[in-house]
Design a protein around this nucleic acid. Structure first.
Lengths: 209, 209
DNA sequence: GTCTATACATGGATAGAC
DNA sequence: GTCTATCCATGTATAGAC
């Protein structure tokens, strides 16, 4: 990739993380990239399109970075631990913040929407493959609609990231609570055959609605 | 409340819902409210402060509207049903969207942050009281850190609202998946004494980490 | 490809008449 | 309290020299 284009994309990511969508002007981005403002339009045509590119790039590089960690997760607790690690790392690097900011902007900017949807899709695909693996070895797999859950997890994570911006302590408490709740899956996982049979019949009686 | 102030707050809410934070300029808001642009500054001093007021108002009126429905929920499935109903209603009225937009903006606008935190706090308090009630009648209440879970639920809901903007079908699938998962709590709730004892000892063995 | 300069629009905010 | 008019900063985007 051309040097200047890369610098601009990197600058866009950094500005989005630091100043949000509001501060992501062509001038601010070019300044962060250390290049001339006019080059934004020469290389990308508009600020929108630069932001869309930045979204794709930031997401791809970040997902790739965490792919092996996701692959190593062997329980829901592991998955939450990766999530926590990811969140801590992103507090500094802020690439999830980029996605959150663009997600909020995409609602009113149709040019941004497809790029953001793609970016989120990468995370969702990753989570989906972990959940598929995990639910395969679980006793009550029919309770888990993996594609839907993956979307719920991704959306929740974005929401938590935004929430952290206004209440860091609250966000930490939320993650703690989820981790504690995750013990439940381990419990179900390690259940003896008798209790398991009782649960299963109860599920059948309750139905899936 | 003075007529013009009310009109401006209402205009701000409508513009935020329709055009997002990006489109929420003094001129756009005043136009939506049918009043003169200069009145934004006369009554509120700045656009920021008007948005903060709008956040408080939109949240308070909306939370009040749903208070009785929350109070009527007697299971996790009920709570999710209220959430689904709320989401459908907000697709039209868009007051949760307002909160989501302002949450994204609050990251870089310190004047907005406290108002948004307060607004979210109202929802969290409501969810917290439902969860307290529900977990009281549940067999494994010690797995539920109610304040943390309430924050997680609120943040997740905001995330879903934003996600819906770029992928409505995906958001619907996510809600479906959560509803299906909620069957698990009903199952636990209606467990016989033998299975319950087995689960409880398993929890003790697994620990709360 | 990159720079300077600039046209042009939008938005925050204020002054001053009514 | 409300209006018109206006100032000034910022932002998008382009033209044209290098």
């Amino acid at each position: 990739m051309a040097d200047t284009k890369a610098k601009l994309i990197d600058g866009a990511v950094r500005v989005l993380a630091a100043e949000g969508l509001q501060g992501a002007s062509a001038r601010a981005i070019a300044s962060a990239a250390g290049v001339n403002q006019a080059l934004v339009f020469y290389h990308f045509g508009s600020v929108d399109r630069l932001l869309a590119e930045a979204c794709r790039w930031a997401t791809e590089s970040r997902v790739a970075l965490y792919r092996e960690r996701f692959a190593a997760a062997s329980s829901v607790a592991d998955l939450l631990a990766v999530g926590r690690e990811l969140q801590a790392a992103e507090r500094a690097a802020g690439n999830v913040t980029v996605l959150a900011q663009l997600l909020a902007g995409a609602r009113t900017d149709p040019r941004l929407a497809p790029a953001v949807a793609d970016g989120l899709g990468l995370w969702i695909a990753e989570i989906e493959s972990v959940l598929t693996r995990l639910s395969g070895s679980m006793p009550f797999a029919d309770l888990f609609d993996v594609p839907g859950l993956a979307r719920a997890v991704a959306a929740a994570f974005i929401g938590l990231e935004l929430y952290e911006g206004v209440d860091p302590d609250g966000a930490a408490a939320a993650l703690d609570a989820l981790e504690r709740l995750a013990v439940l899956t381990e419990v179900l996982d390690g259940l003896g055959p008798v209790a398991r049979r009782a649960l299963r019949s109860k599920i059948r009686r309750t139905g899936t609605r």
